[in-house]
Design a protein around this nucleic acid. Sequence first.
DNA 1: TTGTAAGCGTTATCAC
DNA 2: GTGATAACGCTTACAA
Lengths: 335, 335
Amino acid sequence: MDNQISIRRIAELAGVSVATVSRIINKTGRYSKETEARVHEIMDAYHYVPNMLAKGLRTSRNMTIGILIPDITGVYFGDVASTVQSYMFARGYASIILNTGRDKEQELACIRTLQSQQVSGVVHIVRENPADAGYINLPTVYLDADPAREPNQENVVNVTCDNVMGGYLGTKRMLDAGCRNIGILMTPQNYTHVKRLEGYEKALSEYGIAPDAGKQIHLERMSIRAARRAVKEYLANDPFDGIMCLNDAFAIGALKGLLELGVRVPEDVKIVGYDSSDMLAATNPAITTIIQPIDQVGETIANELLRMMEIGTPGEDAGEHSIIIPISLLDRDSV
Amino acid sequence: MDNQISIRRIAELAGVSVATVSRIINKTGRYSKETEARVHEIMDAYHYVPNMLAKGLRTSRNMTIGILIPDITGVYFGDVASTVQSYMFARGYASIILNTGRDKEQELACIRTLQSQQVSGVVHIVRENPADAGYINLPTVYLDADPAREPNQENVVNVTCDNVMGGYLGTKRMLDAGCRNIGILMTPQNYTHVKRLEGYEKALSEYGIAPDAGKQIHLERMSIRAARRAVKEYLANDPFDGIMCLNDAFAIGALKGLLELGVRVPEDVKIVGYDSSDMLAATNPAITTIIQPIDQVGETIANELLRMMEIGTPGEDAGEHSIIIPISLLDRDSV
DNA sequence: TTGTAAGCGTTATCAC
DNA sequence: GTGATAACGCTTACAA
C-alpha cells in the first residue's frame, strides 16, 4: 500500500514483458486484445499510476508546464493563470505555478527551478519589469510583456489585450457623458499602462483636447490606499470631472477618496476602472470598467503554448509572434 | 544552447568522474577544494542545471509538492495557496497547483496526477465536499476539512482557523452594539460554516437569545448575487437588525441588497463579514470582518508538511493531527 | 580523495 | 505479437 507499483511488477503479474505493458499503456505498437485486457485488469487491481519522472526522463518531455506570475493573488493575473492551469490540465499537463514576487533574484530562481523540472513550456506573466531571457530555449508565452523587448524570437509568443483600445473606450465613455477634464491614474513602469495612456490621449484628441501631462497621476504601487490619497491631493489643485483608472485598485481607491471628500459619483466626477469585474461591481456605486476577457486570454495562451510544444520549433506555420485580444467596456453606475 | 548539459558532460570537461561532480553538487562525501573549484567553474560556464526528474527518479524524492484547491481564484484559499507556494519555494520545493473545481471526478484526476508526478507531499484545500482518501499514503495537510472525516491517520494533519470563535466574535460585536435580532448568511454544506454557526449561537445564548432556525439563511452558492437577493427577501418577513455573513461574497451581497432597499448601514442594520479584508474595505461603508491570518495559516501548513516529509512517517513527535489557528475581528464601519 | 557501476521506472530499438 | 535490453541523468555503495 505504501510504495507505488511499477510497470515491471505489472508485467510480472500479467506474465508478459515490460515492453508489452508499455505498449499497452501508450497504445503504441501491437498487442493482442487478450493481453491488453489482462494487463488492464492488473493495473486497475493494483492501482497502477505511471511514474512521470521516469517517463519524462526517458522521453525528455514530462507533461508539465511552468507558470511564472508576479503573485497568484492578483485578480486578473491570478484568474488567467487559473484558466491556463485548468485548460492545460484537460490536455494532460500539470502546471508548476511560481510566484516571482517583485524580486529579480527570485524571478531567476524560478526560471532555474522550471528548467530543473524539465518543463515543456513556460507561461510568463509579467508586471513591471521586462523579464530576463534566462531560458534555454523553451517555448514561452508572455502575457502583457512589451513585445519590443523580445527580439522576435522563435519559440516565443506575446499575448496581451488591446490596451490602446481599453484606454480609448474608457475615456471616450466619459467624454461622451460630458466630461472635459479627465485625469488618469497609472503606473508608468507598466507597459500596458503606457499603451492605455496612448488610447486615453487618442480619445481626448478626438474631442479636440490636448494631452496635458499634469493630468497624469503617476503611482508607484498599485494599491487602493495610494490611489485614494493621490486623488484627494490632486483634486485640490485641479477639479477633474472624470478619472480613468488603469486598474481595479486605483478605481476603488479613487472612489473611496472622492466619496470621503463629499464628491458625488457620478454626478460630480465620473470614474472608469479596469479589470476585476466582481470587485468593481461590489462598490457603491458600481464602477464602469474595461473588461479583459480572461477565458479567452487563458485559452489563447494555452493554445499557443501547446502549438509550440507540439510542433517543436514553430517553423512554417509559426503563427503570430504577437497576439492582441479585444476588450470591452462594461457600463455600470460610475459614469 | 539547446539541450541541457548533463552531469556526465561536466565530469568529462572537468576531467573527473560523475560521482565526484555529484558529491560536489550535493556537498556530500569528500573532495578537494581544487576539484570543487574547477567543477563549479565549468558548471557555471556551461549553465549546468540539475535534472530533477533524474534526481527524483533516483532518490524517489523530487522536490515538489502538490496543492489541491477548489479554485486558485478564491480570495482566502488563493492567498493561502500563494503563501504556501512561496514558503515552500524558499525551502527548495516547487509546487504543482491544481484546481479541483467542484467536480469529484476532476478531484480524483488531480490526485492521480500528483501521484504520477511523485510529489513528496500534498496540501489539500477543501471547500464543501470532504475529499476522498484517494492517496497512496502521502503526507497531506488539509485546510478546513472536517477533522472527524479522517480516521486520525498518520501522515495527515488538519489545519483550520478557529471557526467557532469567528462566529462568536462577529455576532458578539453586533450584540454589544445593540442588535437583538441577528440573522446569519451561510452555506450549510461547508464544514467551517457549521462551526461558525456554533459560535453565533453561543454568542446569542450568552445574551439569553434562543437560537432560531428561521434566522439562518441557507445559500447554496457563495455568490454576491445570491446573498443580495436572499437578504432582500428575508428582510421583508423578519426585520433583522444585524447579519452575520460567513464569507466575503455574502457580506458584499448583503450590503448591496440592504442599500438598494434604502436601509442604512450600520444605523438600521449592522453587518459583519468574513475574510477578504481588501474587498470588504472597498465597500461603502467598509465592512467589519473576521480576519483569518493568511500568512500564519500558510506557514503552519508548510511547516507541518515539511515536518512530515522530512521525518517520513511522523512516529514519535507526530505533533497534533489537528491544528486550530486563532482569528481576530477587524472593526470597520458596518457595525 | 576519487572512480566504478548498479539501479531508479520508463521508452524504444532491435530481434524473434 | 512479444521479449530482451540499452539508455535517459542522477545518487550511492563499494573499491581503489
